[in-house]
């Protein structure tokens, strides 16, 4: 996952939407763990478009 930290508003929309428990908002810094299955839900719901799926 590529995070545009300059766009992120730390709102937690992605965290609350993740079904994999793969995203954590650790003291204002978004972190992803390897449970991410690239479903893309967080990318869609981010209000400001701060997330992009890495091209594998």
């Amino acid at each position: 996952m590529i995070v545009a930290y300059e766009k992120c508003l730390h709102c937690g929309c992605c965290v609350g939407t993740c079904k994999q428990n793969a995203i954590y908002l650790n003291d204002y810094i978004l972190q992803f763990n390897d449970l991410c299955n690239r479903c893309g839900r967080c990318v869609k719901v981010c209000p400001v478009g701060a997330l992009t799926l890495e091209v594998k």
């Binding site: 929309c13 839900r41 209000p47």
Partner: peptide
């Protein structure tokens, strides 16, 4: 701890939500 409720997840509650049942707000 609000919408993201990390604590509920850690404790073991099922907090998963359908995309139709949430709004992205600004």
């Amino acid at each position: 701890d609000g919408f993201e409720s990390q604590v509920s997840r850690w404790a073991g509650l099922d907090t998963s939500i359908d995309l139709k049942d949430m709004d992205s707000c600004l």
